[in-house]
Computed example of a mutant assay.
Amino acid sequence: MNAKPKQLSTRLPKSFDGPDEPWHYYLTIDLVSKVLGYTILHPWVAWVLVLCLRAQATPWARPEMCIAIAWAFLMSLISIFTAISNRIAYGTAREVDLSEEVIVITGGVEGLGALIAEVYGMRNANVAVLDTKKVDDEEAEEKGVLYYQCDVGDAEQVEAVAKEIIEDLGPPTILINNAGIVYNKSILETTAQEAERIFRTNTLSHFHTLRTFLPHMLSSPHGGTVVTISSVLAHLGATNLSTYTASKAALLALHSSLRAELSQHPNGDAVKTILVTPGQISTKMFAGVKTPSNFLAPVVASVDVAREIIGMVEGGRGGEIAVPLYSRWVQILGVLPVGVQTVIRRWSGIDRAMKSVGMKHE
């Protein structure tokens, strides 16, 4: 009864060490979109406006009343259509009870994966992290996470670790494929060994983990969830990132094939799939890369991406997560005339961003 609560050390991100940015730095198109989504673009708010006009005894035939009603109907139809579309595409949500789930996260020692693992660890969930980096037992106990040293690009290592996870925690039901490395090198500078390692870690690891853990989800009465973390660069490509973008682009096709195969499996409806295609995240993997426009293409905080993933996983839903806003619409670039695409790429600076960084992260 007199035991003192455990005190955990807190380390703030390095960005807190620097001076505060001016107020307009935090004004982004994503913030504007979010505000609009909770106000005039929300069907309930649109109908409240109609009620307010009616409360003022505004006649039904007045132009402002007709416009308000038409807008409310439009917002309602869009909301209903979106809900029906998601229901057709991803089915009904599955019930998620963290006490009964076993969560496997690849590449969870640093970056986004570490943040997700630590959040679930603090909530006493069953979390297993697969990473080549070693974590000492004291740190693992403090975070409430089990760490397994494993190269997820090696099928035999994944299968061996899977047996340990099943023995320690039980059959995995949530798989978050997050592991990834990047080399900032041109095609001519990239060695065959580096290209092979990129694909082993970023792409082949997904095959290994799916082949190993998916059968347990399909046989589980509660189903499971598979999270595939790709990148917005999978749609775009970029100078000095040929191996990285190609390995992430392969995940888009893999995810589509996974969904197609699950739709043909008798128990496939119980396994939810989530595709994550974020823009630049504030992790050390792309530290030093300057965004061309903080308003249109802001750097996304890891916590924001983690919150989206955790929310969808715990809601038992399938779907796609694309943040910031431009990453939801970036595929439209591919249908524009090639001249327009060239102008947009030059304006965005996407093919110049990596030249001045001198980056190599694993």
Rank of each mutant, 00 (worst) to 15 (best):
A117H: 01
I116V: 12
P172C: 10
M217P: 01
T173I: 02
I198T: 15
A301F: 04
K163A: 13
Y147K: 04
V340D: 08
D131Q: 08
I332F: 13
R211W: 07
E142C: 11
I174W: 00
W47E: 02
E164A: 05
L51C: 13
M285R: 02
A3D: 11
I281W: 00
R346M: 10
V48C: 12
V232G: 03
S282C: 09
S85V: 10
A128V: 05
G349P: 10
T132F: 05
E110K: 12
T245D: 04
L336N: 10
I166M: 02
G224A: 06
N2C: 09
M312W: 03
W329S: 09
T173A: 04
S231P: 07
P13A: 09
G170D: 09
P22E: 04
F199H: 09
G18L: 12
V338D: 11
G339K: 07
C52F: 15
S256K: 09
L252N: 08
G315H: 04
D131C: 06
D97Y: 04
K248M: 14
G316W: 05
I29G: 13
V109Q: 05
V182F: 10
A250S: 13
S76Y: 02
G279Y: 00
E167G: 06
W60C: 05
E167Q: 14
A353K: 09
H208R: 08
A162H: 07
A238C: 14
L214I: 08
T342W: 11
A179F: 02
H42E: 06
A270T: 04
A162T: 15
L218D: 06
V300Q: 14
T201E: 01
G318W: 01
A192H: 11
K248E: 15
I103F: 01
